[in-house]
Design a protein around this nucleic acid. Structure first.
Lengths: 219, 219
DNA sequence: GTCTATAAGAAGATAGAC
DNA sequence: GTCTATCTTCTTATAGAC
């Protein structure tokens, strides 16, 4: 990794922990292993480092297409899977979404930084909303809609059903961001949530619960 | 309001909008209508203003007992109401909780400040969690538990049912904090959420939907 | 590209008159 | 309690050698 990227990386770490104003250019430089003035050969000023981070963030977010690709597989392309999904597969889907958001290193630091800095800049608030609210709702809504179409799930209102699926995941995520020690408990809660979600929305309980027959495909 | 309290009030407004580090003592003084040095007759330093805000916040949070009292009525004392609650009353309960969190002036500013500053101080993260996660879940869980006991709702797992009730409210709240223009839409979503929640968990749809007979008591 | 030295400016805090 | 003037410290950013 070249110096410019190391600066961006260390700055992101520091900004996500302390916020922009509480991080000094000298702090970033120190972690990169250079002195503050050297840093100005790579960036015009402190703000330019921040801007580069946001640019990098937008680039990655776009790449991921709003967390559409979970666990390396493009769920849109694999739509067929979701038409015959089992409860266990639904749990895997939810856990993957959750753990990706929680553990992906860049994603986690971006989210923490956006959380801290969101009120300084309306664009950042918008980026947060898109990445952690609107895009996941839209994507999960599409998946759940497929399951409704194929008769796995049933509801009169897919939008609310999606809220019922994703809001608890979002809430557990904000809990774990703030208190990482609650992660184990959160994962158990997540599983119980999805099982109950499935019972509430399943077209027919028995069809779902006996989905064991077929070999499970990893979502 | 004396000068000391006006300083706390204006500082809270500014901290909640820009974060501690981005607010200068002179900014606070200006809004109070004095010069910065005069402010030091009331507080030892900038940090002392922040500490006083936290103290005031804790005092108010304690007073409200974790938002237990919604709309002026102590729900614990009025437990009887919840044993025979109708869907409309459940909607009112949810909306009151939501609008109280969203519109109470102090609550809103405290929450925004905690959101920005939570990663600077573990105590602040803990305060946020207690006020906006754990206490509401505990209180709503108690209410919903009453409804299960009395047979209005049914579930095998009250904890998850409570998560299904509150997580969407929490998520809509974080949406409105960041983009207030989405409030009208959020209120409609909230209502649809509670109606669907009620349908999913109601012991018997018809009993709930015909609860009109009795005059509605405002929760 | 990195360094040392240093300028420039911002922000917190104090001194002392009124 | 409030003010003006000022000090001090911290931080960003630049200058110029290597």
């Amino acid at each position: 990794m070249d110096t410019r990227h190391r600066i961006i990386d260390e700055a992101l770490t520091l900004f996500s922990e302390k916020g922009y104003a509480n991080v000094f250019v000298a702090d970033i430089a120190e972690r990169v292993g250079i002195k503050a003035p050297s840093l100005y050969k790579h960036f015009k000023n402190k703000q330019a480092i921040f801007d580069a981070i946001i640019e990098e963030m937008n680039r990655r977010f776009l790449e991921e297409a709003g967390a559409l690709r979970i666990n390396g597989s493009d769920a849109v392309a694999d739509a067929e899977i979701y038409k015959h999904i089992s409860e266990e597969q639904l749990i895997i889907l939810g856990k993957n979404l959750f753990l990706y958001f929680l553990h992906d290193d860049y994603t986690r630091r971006f989210r923490k930084m956006l959380t801290i800095e969101q009120f300084h800049d309306k664009e950042l608030a918008a980026a947060y909303m898109k990445q952690y609210v609107d895009d996941p709702l839209s994507y999960q809504g599409m998946l759940l809609g497929l399951m409704v179409s194929s008769g796995v799930l049933q509801t009169e209102n897919v939008e609310i059903m999606t809220l019922h699926f994703y809001a608890p995941i979002y809430m557990l995520l904000t809990i774990c961001d703030r208190e990482p020690k609650r992660e184990a408990k959160a994962l158990k809660t997540l599983e119980a949530h999805i099982r109950q979600f499935n019972r509430l929305y399943a077209r027919d309980e028995k069809t779902i619960k006996t989905a064991k027959k077929k070999p499970r495909r990893n979502v």
